[in-house]
Write a protein that binds this DNA or RNA. Structure first.
Lengths: 207, 207, 207, 207
DNA sequence: CATGAATGAGTATTCATTCAT
DNA sequence: AATGAATGAATACTCATTCAT
């Protein structure tokens, strides 16, 4: 169905389409996004669009993959530094980076991300999960006391899902009641308190 | 265009349409939902639908309003009891009630709720916000020590947004990695740790 | 999918669409026929077309059914008369009737018939086959000597398929080398010769 | 637009395209056949296709011409032999050869032939008609008694059109009610009976 | 000569909305 | 008030044809 053009020109076109996808979703919303919109925004014809993608869904998939790859590519290099930091600072650092990424190109990613949350193609999320797992594992190796915490799965689930959502929602709100700094600081504190609290309950707590 | 019908028959029809809306969204997804589907499910004609609602969007709005009203109507009566409980138990109780509500009628509300997050007509959320504010205020009056916590707004924002999202996401997942009990317990613990941690940091803490 | 409107108005619309189908296929050919063409010719909107037919294919099916019903409805009443005639006259009579039918409304049926030959939805052909079978059976009862012919299946297959095709092709030709009367007379003769020849070979031949 | 290439390479490419045409029509049907399919099957690019043919229609034309040329090229050499045979055997021999041709390369020609009947560019049929005329003429010269038959044109028309169609249809049917041998034998008999019958009617008949 | 990416008019089909009955 | 047939703009997707490289 889809031609697979392999020149660098093609790679550029594929990228253009993906970027156009983010642009149009940001401008028109997911329901308002049409293949023609995307083609126009990418500066190509509808026909060409279908040279590169089998259908609209495939574009959304590629966008999903792109955004995941971008997040992983941005955060992974930070892992060595993050693991040496205290949990508060690490969370703060992490979320600032996350915001910067979502707000790139006038918030182009942000809108798609807010829809993507329940499109959730699980396969595409794998690299992200792997990275988070690596981050946690290495963090634990540098801070062995956290290994005593029993409820890591539950808290991880909540912190990751809830935290990401809270940030996306905050960035999407036209007039949020708290500013981003406060939000991030709060999340850092929460993670810290949870670790401390969980450790205390588990018994003692020395670093 | 739209009459605002006061007669009980009309009110019943409006309700039927709204319930049909939840039913159809649950069955077909938001994209798969058509006015015809809704009219059929409501047992009326498309023509009649437009007698009661100006357009499809208006139905979604009404659904939003309805679900918010339902949540508030369910939770608000619990406030007196919740404020007497410890934070852990309160959170747990709250979230079980929330789940029960979302899962009513074979999860009719759940699907819409998962989409509603970014349909989000902010005005409609007001009653919910007010109720949560009341809950927190009255909780604080019964547990004055929490008033010492400075970062209440941030933590409130995170816990509420993140918690709601985490629960909705969890209920929507076909095979979640943790079970609901663990999730709820975890959220309760987190709130508890956060309060304890924040208080400890703020100085000392007598109840 | 398809509304099933049941008033007489609807039946009229369905007929209009089917007739429009024949008209457009005659004018534009099968490949040149679009749903818009048909809707226009039927004097309705595309949307309405799909109120009555699930898709384009369904229209072709209905046309097929219609033409078969029309043929059967025209020929079957003639059976009592045909069976009393000699084979030559019966064939001639049959084919004149067939031509008249195909040429109805400026040859509206003819074009579709020429395409329909290899679309051949077998189920729709059943009534036609049944009628031909009845015709042959009753003919044989009036002319018992033909029962002695062994190669009836083969000759039936050839005469029916070949004969129908020869007629359709002849009617479709802009400048046929022989005229219709000659063609029909020839077919009558052939059937006659075949019967006589086959009977002679089978042994004797008295009526 | 179209070059008329005389070089052998070009001739080979043209042939490849034509063969690809038959292949694709057989595989995908006429409606499912695209220029891209044909180009791929021919092992060339779409661009090259248009170097050799002005448009898709021109390819179909060439296919038509090719198949006619092929039939003529196969049958004409048989004429000397056929004219010495009895009409039954001649018909049988002719149709077996015809079948073999249609079934060549897994029935590559057959599908196109079944569509070609109403694509029917009449000019292309000329060589075929000429050959059939020659066959009949020479046959008559070897069997002078058939010259007495008056209705030769009509019967020729019917036998040829009807016979060809009956064979093509039979070969196309997934589960024909009679087998090919019976069909061919039947056609032979019919021709025989028609000749005998016509002669008898015309007066007497010595070979 | 060859390529294959680019084009865009054209196709079937859907669906929110209207309006005559 | 209720109906549901009618509408037609809009959508995703295709494919014959062109043309820069």
């Amino acid at each position: 169905m889809t031609r697979k053009p392999q020149q660098s020109r093609s790679r550029a076109t594929v990228d253009a389409i993906i970027q156009a996808g983010f642009l149009v979703v940001a401008r028109e919303g997911l329901e308002g996004t049409t293949t023609r919109h995307i083609a126009d925004a990418a500066g190509i014809s509808v026909g060409s669009l279908y040279e590169y993608f089998a259908n609209k869904e495939a574009i959304y998939d590629a966008m999903y993959e792109h955004i995941v790859r971008d997040i992983v590519g941005t955060i992974r290099p930070l892992i060595p530094k993050l693991v040496t930091m205290g949990e508060r600072d690490a969370v703060v650092e992490l979320l600032y980076q996350f915001r910067q990424l979502l707000m790139r190109d006038q918030g182009r990613y942000l809108h798609y991300a807010s829809y993507a949350m329940h499109l959730a193609q699980r396969e595409h999320l794998e690299p992200l999960k792997r990275m988070l797992h690596d981050l946690l594992t290495q963090y634990a190796m540098h801070h062995p006391r956290v290994l005593k915490i029993q409820s890591i799965p539950a808290m991880g689930y909540i912190i990751i899902n809830g935290g990401i959502f809270a940030v996306i929602r905050h960035l999407s709100e036209p007039a949020p009641v708290i500013n981003f700094e406060t939000l991030v600081k709060g999340l850092g504190d929460m993670v810290h308190y949870c670790i401390e609290g969980a450790l205390e309950e588990a018994g003692s707590g020395t670093d």
